[in-house]
Structure formats: structure tokens, C-alpha cells
């Protein structure tokens, strides 16, 4: 049991890391990763929703009638998304302002609904929690690393701290929309290269 729990957790970190391996949830992946801080914030908000919706759906999996399961999942997910939105507005307003419309869009993030449908509705509480945590942390790490790459090249800073001094001419292409695609493509390429060996 303990071994499988660890497996459920770690699969989200590499084998099924969401944007890179499953290539899911690309809307926030491309939209908010202009800096490492934004990517990490978005990832953590999604993780919160993922873990709690997984827990609740797993607990209710025998109660939810299969014909209306998607509607039930969406109610549960939407509730947690609004909880996150209100909490961010109340306590991390600056981050809430930069993430803006992407927070409510977690509702339609296919990763969250995908885990509810494919995993939490069929597995027990502990396994679902581990799954939600693993996928969520994997998602956060992906967004944070993509954000870091774009921030370092695009603005010459890392987590808001200047890296190269005043003489560095920022390659602003990387923090604009096309740069997101280029950075994501290169990271996917790197992941595949590493995976092949």
C-alpha cells in the first residue's frame, strides 16, 4: 500500500507531469508563465483546487450517480476555484491582479476535471490525495520552470532579482506570447531527449 501511494505521488512529478508529458492545461501554461513568481502562484492555486476536489470526489464517489457525475464534479471544482479566488483577493492581491482571468479559468482546466474523472472517482481517499498532490506539484514545477526560463532570458531577472546587471539587454520576445510557444517547445524537446536515454 505504502509503495503504491508513493507511486501515485511521484508519477505526477515525472512520468505524467502535466504540461510536458500529457500536454494538458496549456492555456495557463502559456498565458501566465511570464515570470517564475506568476507560474508558481498559478501552479499552487491549481494544486489547491486539485487536491481538495480529488479528496471530496473520492469521498463521494459512491454517492454521485454516474449519469450526472460531470455536473457534480464541476460544482465541486468550481466551488474550490471561487474559494481560491476569494482567498487570493483577500491575502495576495498583487498576485491576484497579475493572474487575473486565469484563476476563474481553473474551472475548465482539463487537468483538474481529468484527474476527477480518471482517478478520484475510481480510487480511495489516500490514493486520490496522493494523486492530486503529485499532479499539482508537477504542474507547479512545470509552470515555475517555464516561467523561470522565460523570465531569465526575457527580462534578465530571476524571481524578481536582477541577474546580469544593467548592461544586459533583455530579450523581450521571450516574455511575449510567441516566446511562450518557443520556450514550451524547447522544454518538451529537452524532456524527450532526457527520456530517451
Amino acid at each position: 500500500m505504502a509503495k503504491t501511494l508513493v507511486q501515485e505521488f511521484t508519477k505526477g512529478l515525472w512520468a505524467e507531469i502535466p504540461p510536458f508529458r500529457l500536454v494538458l492545461g496549456l492555456c495557463p501554461t502559456l498565458g501566465v508563465t511570464t515570470s517564475m513568481k506568476n507560474g508558481l502562484g498559478m501552479g499552487l492555486a491549481t494544486t489547491f483546487v486539485l487536491v481538495f476536489s480529488n479528496i471530496l470526489i473520492s469521498l463521494m464517489r459512491n454517492l454521485i450517480p454516474s449519469k450526472v457525475r460531470i455536473a457534480c464534479f464541476i460544482i465541486i471544482i468550481a466551488t474550490f476555484v471561487i474559494v481560491v479566488e476569494l482567498l487570493m483577493q483577500a491575502y495576495t492581491y498583487a498576485l491576484f491582479q497579475t493572474l487575473g482571468v486565469f484563476i476563474p479559468l481553473i474551472v475548465v482546466n482539463c487537468i483538474v476535471l481529468g484527474r476527477a474523472e480518471a482517478f478520484a472517482s475510481k480510487n480511495g481517499l489516500l490514493a486520490s490525495t496522493a494523486d492530486g498532490l503529485g499532479i499539482g506539484i508537477g504542474f507547479s514545477l512545470s509552470l515555475a520552470s517555464l516561467g523561470a526560463v522565460r523570465e531569465i532570458i526575457g527580462t534578465g531577472t530571476f524571481f524578481g532579482h536582477s541577474l546580469f546587471g544593467p548592461n544586459y539587454e533583455p530579450f523581450t520576445f521571450m516574455v511575449q506570447a510567441p516566446g511562450a510557444f518557443v520556450a514550451l517547445g524547447l522544454m518538451l524537446c529537452m524532456m524527450n531527449l532526457i527520456g530517451k536515454k
Binding site: 450526472v68 460544482i75 468550481a78 474559494v83 476569494l86
Partner: peptide
């Protein structure tokens, strides 16, 4: 199930909105 779920989540959100 759908009714109970909606009512509970609505109540929770209303409470949280006033609290924050």
C-alpha cells in the same frame, strides 16, 4: 445529490464572501 451539492457549495461560498 445535485440539489444538496449546490446548496452546500452555495452556502459555503456565501459565508466565505462575507468573511473576506
Amino acid at each position: 445529490v445535485l440539489t444538496v451539492l449546490s446548496v452546500v457549495s452555495g452556502g459555503l461560498l456565501a459565508y466565505l464572501r462575507t468573511a473576506t
